[in-house]
Amino acid sequence: MTTNHPSEPLLRRYARGDADLPADQLWAVEAHLETCAPCRGRLAPEPIAEAVWAELLPQLDSTPQMPRSRRRYGWVSPAAGPWLAAILLVTAAAVVLDRIGFAVGDRVSVVLLVAPVLPVLGVAASWSRALDPAYELTAATPRAGLPLVFRRTAAVLGVLVPGLTIAGLVTDVGFARWLLPCLAFTLGTLALGTLVGVTRAAVALIAAWAVVIVAPTIAFTRTSTAFDAEAAPVWAGVLAVSVVVIVLRRMTFTRLEANR
């Protein structure tokens, strides 16, 4: 097979990227270069281009990379940060009150008293329209929905449960007594939130806490029966119903209705 190798001037014009090189010639040279190694070798490096590259390379290496954000937002809702801090503060305050035997007498633990209501605040901060300014933006994104709900709730519990565990050890309150009510209130807020909006759900559950747990404690100066071992199945039932409701109504977290 005889091949016409491109002429020296043509090859130089191609290498320079001349704009006036006719398209048919350009294609012919390009197609030829793909199959002909010797001609590729004839594409001698342009001295000027070499010089420019030599000058540019160090600069390219030192081009700053796009700065990464230092803030972690994968789990904790940006609106919930201060609330999580508040939760830990309240826990610490409850421990102090218990230690000095203040408030509602010696037979009642303040830590136990506040345990159920603390996660409600964290969950509300993650989803409520009143507390999260960017709720509408968040609801419109693909990540909105059950996975984000569980991430943010896990973040709340991830702060709360270790805090309460330590508080429980210090004040000698059993793990088993507060964990179930705490989880039931957490998921209960979300489940009720899918029906009436998280803000209203939080308000309703805080009211329920005041009536069912705080009021009897003050009235009889003894810990509410809600924390007795016999009440555990009730809490477990609330927990189970809540999970079912959340899963069934999961789409509301992708809409504005859950933020009400």
Binding site: P67, R68, S69, R71, Y73, G74, T141, P142, R143, A144
Partner: peptide
């Protein structure tokens, strides 16, 4: 943060 909510890749450059 919004880019993360939109499940994007290469967030720093897009930002």
């Amino acid at each position: 943060y919004v880019a993360w909510l939109k499940e994007m890749r290469d967030i720093p450059a897009a930002t």
